[in-house]
């Protein structure tokens, strides 16, 4: 009561088996088996023993936790902390003397985040390459058209990989001789012609 009405305390000789949810801060000095989800701060004190996932705004651990920690703000493991489980929060601090076994990931909280991040990363690199390829390809192709429609010359000028990727975006990572350029060009010209007719 002295610590404020919004603070929940699980005392050192208390044992909670079940879910703890709601708003406000939670301080655990005893044992909890069951998920802890709250909108405030969660403090697992030295001597606290939690066998559950913890999800909160800010999580400070000085005791033992077996479960995943997910915080909207920060996860802080202080000296004496023992955590077996994954940590996920925008900011994660592990002090000297803190033990962790599990996956640690900084970044926005949420289960979907890691997949989205990796997907974005995998997307970002090729698109950048493609942009670069486009700019290169335009430079290369412009003179090629002017020079001559001879397939040999085309092949020579578009020997550059970038030019090929520009023409055939599906086979972006094609390595090898560029002869297939000729039929591809035919396709392109046909398609353009059709469009113009219609």
């Amino acid at each position: 009561m002295a610590t404020g009405h919004a603070t929940t305390v699980i005392g050192s000789s208390s044992f909670v088996r079940g879910r703890v949810t709601g708003s406000g801060d939670v301080e655990i000095a005893g044992r909890v088996e069951g998920d802890v989800t709250c909108s405030g701060d969660v403090l697992v004190d030295a001597g606290g023993l939690v066998a559950a996932n913890i999800s909160a705004r800010r999580i400070v651990i000085r005791g033992a936790v077996k479960g995943d920690l997910t915080a909207e703000d920060a996860v802080i493991l202080e000296a004496g902390a023992r955590v077996v489980g994954d940590l996920r929060a925008p900011r994660i601090a592990i002090a000297q003397g803190g033990l962790v076994r599990g996956h640690v990931q900084t970044g926005a909280a949420g289960a979907a985040r890691p997949r989205a991040a990796s997907a974005a990363a995998s997307r970002a690199t090729p698109s950048n390459e493609r942009v670069a390829a486009k700019s290169v390809a335009r430079v290369e192709l412009a003179p090629a058209k002017k020079q001559a429609p001879a397939p040999a010359a085309r092949a020579a000028s578009s020997g550059n990989n970038h030019a090929e990727t520009r023409e055939r975006p599906k086979a972006a990572t094609r390595v090898g001789p560029p002869p297939p350029v000729v039929p591809v060009l035919k396709k392109g010209t046909k398609a353009v012609a059709h469009h113009k007719k219609r």
């Binding site: 404020g4 009405h5 919004a6 603070t7 929940t8 305390v9 208390s14 044992f15 909670v16 088996r17 079940g18 879910r19 703890v20 949810t21 709601g22 708003s23 406000g24 801060d25 939670v26 069951g34 709250c38």
Partner: peptide, 11 residues
Amino acid sequence: GAGITIEGEVT
């Protein structure tokens, strides 16, 4: 505390 719900057993 107020705002907190515990579903389960407290010993």
